[in-house]
Write a protein that binds this DNA or RNA. Sequence first.
DNA 1: ATGGCCGGCGCAGCCGGA
Length: 259
Amino acid sequence: MKIATWNINGVKARIEALTAWLREASPDLVCLQEIKSVDEGFPRLEIESLGYNVATHGQKGFNGVAILSKLPLEDVTRGLPGDPTDEQARYIEAVVSVGPRVLRVGGLYLPNGNPLGTEKFPYKLAWMRRLEQHAAERLAYEEPFVLMGDYNVIPDPIDARRPDAWLGDALFQPESRQAYRRLLALGFTDAVRATTEAQVFTFWDYQAGAYQKNDGIRIDHVLLSPQAADALVGVHIDSHVRGWDKPSDHVPVVVELAL
DNA sequence: ATGGCCGGCGCAGCCGGA
């Protein structure tokens, strides 16, 4: 099956691109980030008409995540455990049955953390601690589990065209990168890095002709549990979508699993 | 060489993003 993650930067502004890409790529399951919509405002019918089940976890104006799936979504949970006072809609999880097996999927929109020196950066790091705790609990199930989304972390210098330009940025701080490595050390496989050593990007800023200059970063990641990694067939970044009219600044990352 | 954007909200710019 074909699963994907895509930060669409506003589902209302992106509905044409989203439906065009769903028709073109025909993924079985997609995690969306930054829907920037309340649940009632999500264009559910247009997406259901393409054969998808829809689960959303939205909020007004900012953030918001969703899962689209051709297979029925079971056991949908919303919000990342560990802080009942956190009101930002950044995590959704569900299970799909693939024949006799199950696939568990967590879709996340990790806090940006900028600017440094404000409360936003500690919030990011605390969120990553909570994610680590939750991921460890899920890995203990020893089932195919995919944790994917916009991590807002540039893991290594090769993951930026101009790493020097990101030195003062929350996405490339040592603490952010270390927290990402701690997550991997739990036993996850970074699907992109498992299949290529090449420099590849998932985000290009709207400013300064970044896409035309290929001045990008890799911050959208697909992490596979050992059981999911065993089923890994291939990975594809749909970079061409960044060149469409009214694009998101992120592009879809697609993973094929033999499930 | 430098600077360059976009979406939501809501109807003017500001906030947030990366």
